[in-house]
Design a protein around this nucleic acid. Structure first.
Lengths: 161, 161
DNA sequence: CGATCATAGTTAGGTAGCCTAACAGTTAGG
DNA sequence: CCTAACTGTTAGGCTACCTAACTATGATCG
């Protein structure tokens, strides 16, 4: 049995259905992001900064913060777009820009305390809304969804390359 | 055993993981839409028009086309946003606006031949790219994904209410 | 060493897609 | 009729992205 052929009908059908599911999910994401406290783009960046941070409360830890170019790469946007968002976060008091001691061209971006709190609160609220939606599913449905999430994660990971 | 409680830890974790998957999928969607021939919003609208059409080649069929308000509702946007997109599609020769004979306030939007062709070609290309990505998955992964798509469909359907 | 080239980020200007508010025309009800 | 409700467009504004051009620093090499 031949699989993985580019023209395999089953594969194309799966591709179509997955695209369709993602397309409709846009509305879901929009609904979740409509709570206003933080835009999707800003929450994404804050979360990324949080994950990238060594999470050491020790402020003397080496090379803290993430460089602008790295942020852009992580978020899949161009550097000027990242700069723009960073400036907004900075003005909102959620992030800080500091010069990189080892390279004066570079800029290190870190979360502030307020940024950390904002990310936690925004995620909590969105997760609660999503949990409410998921609560109407059957146990089998939830199991199927849970089983697919790692797969979707692998799909998304292939894009990094 | 209590399930579906808003504070159920498993449910919240699933919500978090699903949100995370959707968040990352944005890049995937962006990649798919980057082929340039048609924006995501425009393709969505064209596809909606295609699905809503009676699909009768007979141009004398009753009440052809979709009203602007209905389009907006189907796409989850406000009426002015729909109008804006429709005008763009019209200018591109992909859609047509006609007065509704039974209500002079209303406008009926239909696909042109070019619009139909554009939707087919854009979908084909995107599906092929997606199929290429999916082809690197294992059979088990594809099965898990396929099993979850109806669930995601149900989740998205709950938003219509 | 110093000219040159590469790299990091910002600034400037533009586009797409969404929104609300205000408007014009049409229909329906009291 | 005349007012209230509805349909769609116009006007103006916002966010988030982009490319191109610029500044400043670092790295290479003759």
């Amino acid at each position: 049995m031949i699989v993985n052929e580019p023209s395999d009908p089953g594969l194309l059908a799966l591709a179509r259905d997955f695209r369709e599911a993602l397309r409709h999910s846009i509305y879901l994401v929009r609904r979740l992001d409509a709570d206003g406290e933080l835009s999707a783009a800003q929450l994404s960046m804050l979360k990324m900064l949080m994950d990238a941070a060594p999470a050491t409360a020790d402020s003397a830890s080496s090379a803290s913060g993430v460089r602008v170019g790295e942020i852009a790469r992580n978020l899949g946007v161009k550097v000027p777009s990242a700069t723009e968002q960073i400036i907004k976060l900075e003005r909102a008091g959620l992030a800080r820009r500091e010069p990189d001691p080892s390279d004066s061209r570079a800029v290190r971006v870190t979360l502030t305390e307020a940024g950390l709190a904002a990310v936690a609160s925004a995620n909590e609220r969105r997760n609660a809304v999503m949990a409410g939606i998921l609560s109407s599913l059957s146990d089998d449905d939830r199991a199927a969804l849970a089983a697919a999430l790692p797969v979707i994660g692998r799909i998304n990971a292939t894009l990094q390359a």
